[in-house]
Structure formats: C-alpha cells, structure tokens
Design a protein around this nucleic acid. Structure first.
Length: 440
RNA sequence: CGGAGUGUAGCGCAGUCUGGUAGCGCACCUCGUUCGGGACGAGGGGGUCGUAGGUUCGAAUCCUAUCACUCCGACCA
C-alpha cells in the first residue's frame, strides 16, 4: 500500500479525552474515531489489526472444533422473555421498537438465540457435542463507557456456545475452550493467565477469566511466577482427547492466580517470595459453563441413549477482539508509539523513502516495494513528500515490526537500513538482502 | 446512577468574569529555500462560538432551557 493513496489520519496532538495509552495511541495512529460515547468507527489501519485478531481467534476456535455461524445484532424481545432475561437484564440492554411497534433489542449476548437455533435442529445425543460460535457486534449500554475501545458500548465479541448431553461432557467442552484460549492469546503475543472467576448470577461450575499482564492494566492481579514461563499448548494438541485437555487445564490451574476481587492474601503470602508476582491485568476472555440454565426454560432437549429427553448442558466462551486490540497496545508500546507483535501488525514492513524525487531513492523503493508486494509481504510505502523526521515519527507511531529506510546516503554505499521496531536494532543491507530478510 | 467539569476551525487552546467587526499554535493550500529523527520564510483558505429561546442598539460573552461529551466513584467482553 502506498501511503500517499491510503487513509491514515494521524494526529500530532493527543485528543484531550484519551486517558490511557492505548486510547491515545489508537487515536493518534488514526486507527479509530469516536462517533458517540463508547461507539467508534474503525479506520483502515485499525480495521486491519482487528481483522487479524479475529482471524487468529477464528483459527483457534476452528482448531478446537467450534463451528462458525453468524447471528444477527437485532433480536426479538420474545426470545428473551422465554429465558426471563428481558426483564432481568436492566438498562444495559438497548431496547427498540420496529414500525409495527414490536419490541426488539440490540443483542448484548446470544445465549437465548443460540439456544433457539439449537433446539430447532438438534434432537439427538448423537449430534453432540456441538460448539457454535460467531463474531458479531454487541451493544451494552454501559453507564460509563471509557478508555476508548477497552470499554465501549458497541464492541465486537467472539462468543461460542457449547452443547453437551451431561455435565461431564460440558466439562470437556469447557476444557477445549480453555486450551484454545491459551493458544489464542499466546499467538497474539500476549501473556494470558487464567484466573478463577465468580460464576455470578449465571451460575454453573466452571468459570475462568483470562487476564493479560500489562503495566497499565485496570486491575491488580496476583499469581505464581511459573505461569509467566509456561509453554503454550502445541498446535497439534488433540482436542478429542479429554485426558490430554484435562492435563493442560490442571497444569494451568494448579498454581495461585487471582484477581484482586478473589485475592487470598494469606495463600499468596504462603508462596516463596521469589514466586510471588503482583502485576496489573486486563480481562480479555471469560469462559464458563452454566448447565441447563437456558436449555431448561427454553426446552432445548435432546433424546439420550436411554430414550429419555433431557435438557442440554451448555457453556459460553467470550473473547472481545476490539478490547484485545487495545490490550495488545497496552502490553506493547514505548514512548514513540505502538509496537505490534508481528501476528497482528497492520503491515509487516514500513518502507520509507527519505527523499522523494531522488531518482536513486525512488528506484530503490520501487524495487523493494514491488518485490515485497509480489512475495505477498504486507508493506506500507511512505511515498509522501515529507521530510525524513516526519516519516520516522509516523512509522514509529504506527508500530510496524520492520522499517526499511531508503535514502541517498545509504544508496551511495549500495545499502538500505533495516530497523526492527521492537529492539531498535538497525542493519545496513543491500537491496536484495533487505528484501530477502522480509520474505519468510 | 451520584459527584465534578467541558462544548470556540481537523487537533490542542485563548477570548467569557468586565457585551462592541472571532484569535493563537499545529494541520491544510500556494510559492521559494530546504531535506538521514516531526524545517524556515512569505502569502492564503477554513468557524451559524453545541442547540433553542430571551435580555440588549449590539451576545462567544449576560439569563433560561436543552443536547452532547469528558473525568472521579459503584458495575462489565
């Protein structure tokens, strides 16, 4: 992509409302624009990151056996009256009427709808287990949205719902998602630690929040140091092997880990001092099982092997991709701007032509740009007629993992500079070597 | 929802107390000189001062209402 033809509305000053670093950087880097309280437009650069986050989330959901569908944002109030939540949900639910004065709502979550879909089509235990998910915009009319997309009213959520014949099956489904979440967050370049959570009004046996550690996180968290070194479950983990899943989950839940709400100071103090980690954390995922809470009132029954009809056992599993984008920035930035993990960077390479109009610089950039594009490497070519300092500042701000800096001085020696955004390491390479370095 | 604040050009702000032709910096456009870490000079464009009423010869400024947004607290992917 040529920057001169792109839409990258960078801000030099920080809008005054941005209080946390991810919000500031997302606004400055032209990733988002606030349209209303807690409601954001995603600009091209932000959308590229959001799409990449979603792609990784989907890959890991699919790997774990979940099946994607897409439910609408608008739901009928009648559906929610079946579960009793239309009255219970309160003011966080955005309620609207259509032209026929029928009650609708903008979905804050989808348990009711997925249960209705399930009961209409699944009648036998032979079709279980089943896990259906979608990635869809949600709306929760928060009293006080804040921190940009970290806590917005309209947000993107991946929500998966599992269906099993009994509690034991539901527990395996839970463990599948547990492992899938560990892999998902690791691939996003995050250190995520599962922490036991309240099941709250939803009830149920299992519940974990996935907390990523970031200095600017909202809440204090406490955990055993070993969690920071735990290896991510491998890509070839067998999601059909309950014993394997259970082993991973046991390992990841054996040691102390708690958010401030559930913190047990005495238990934490009992750990060797060297193993105690106190940090800031951001909740990026939440999983739980809730048994037959919805299947019973909504009559989502299946016939078991014994011929008897029983309500299915369910679980639900949420990740907020829009929040994740902000969380990734909270976990990866410096005083110059964002530092993207390569997996979600909007472009892999930023190519800066320090002297547009200089024939050697133009030709070198054209060659590098063309070669990388042909190789399928995502490159943003800064071909604006700007001074070098502005280009450096822009590239550092938007945080692409690699910068290739092309100017007359280097070209006189036959080299361009390749800089790693994260480490700051620079290397002078020939054009060919620089190109090859960027091609996997 | 309780408390506190803010709405003036794309962004950051001054002007409001004490009414008198709407300003500054950045950004933007033109020309020139520049060009390896956010250049300099000259010229230029852009604002019904959140909205609606009212007071006044005259309102960004005073009064009333209203809307929006932000921050602090209690709740949440």
């Amino acid at each position: 992509m040529r920057l001169s033809r792109y839409f990258l509305p960078i801000l030099r000053d920080t809008p005054k409302e941005a209080e946390i670093v991810s919000h500031r950087l997302m606004l400055r880097a032209g990733m988002i624009r606030q349209e209303s309280a807690g409601i954001y437009a995603w600009m091209p650069l932000g959308l590229r990151v959001l799409d990449k986050v979603c792609a990784i989330v989907r890959e890991e959901q699919n790997r774990a056996g979940a099946v994607e569908l897409l439910m609408p944002t608008l739901q009928s109030a009648d559906l929610w009256r079946e579960s009793g939540r239309y009255e219970d949900y309160g003011k966080e639910m955005l309620r609207i009427k259509d032209r026929h004065r029928r009650d609708l709502l903008y979905g804050p979550t989808n348990e009711e709808m997925i249960t209705a879909i399930f009961r209409a089509h699944v009648k036998s235990y032979k079709d279980l287990p089943l896990n259906l998910y979608h990635v869809q915009w949600k709306f929760r009319d928060e009293v006080r949205p804040r921190f940009g997309v970290m806590r917005s009213r309209e947000f993107l959520m991946k929500d998966a719902y599992s269906f099993d014949l009994d509690a034991q099956g539901a527990n395996v489904a839970y463990q599948r998602m547990f492992v899938a979440y560990l892999r998902t967050f690791a691939r996003l370049g995050l250190t995520a630690i599962p922490m036991a959570a309240d099941t709250g009004p939803i009830g149920g046996e299992n519940s974990h929040e996935f907390i990523i550690l970031a200095d600017t996180g909202e809440s204090e968290v406490y955990c055993h140091r070993d969690y920071l070194q735990y290896a991510t479950p491998p890509a070839d983990v067998n999601f059909d092997d309950p014993a394997a899943l259970s082993g991973i989950v046991k390992k990841w839940t054996a040691l102390y880990a708690a958010t401030s709400e559930k913190h047990d100071a005495a238990a934490f103090a009992a750990l060797p001092a060297a193993d105690q980690v106190t940090a800031r954390g951001i909740e990026v995922g939440h999983i739980f099982t809730f048994g037959t809470k919805y299947s019973e009132p909504m009559k989502a029954n299946v016939t078991g092997p014994d011929g008897r009809e029983v309500p299915v056992h369910m679980g639900s599993y949420g990740i907020g991709p829009t929040r994740l984008v902000a969380a990734i920035i909270e976990a990866g930035h410096d005083d110059k701007g964002i530092v993207w993990p390569e997996a979600v960077a909007p472009f892999k390479v930023g190519l800066a032509n320090l002297k547009m109009g200089d024939s050697a610089s133009d030709a070198a950039c054209a060659k590098i740009y063309g070669a990388l594009e042909n190789a399928g490497v995502e490159v943003l070519y800064d071909d604006r007629d700007e001074r070098p300092g502005a280009k450096f500042a822009t590239l550092d701000l938007i945080g692409l993992p690699w910068q290739i800096i092309v100017g007359p001085k280097g070209l006189a020696q036959g080299t361009v500079e390749v800089k790693n955004r994260r480490s700051g390491a620079r290397e002078d390479l020939s054009l060919e070597a620089a190109i090859n370095r960027m091609i996997p």
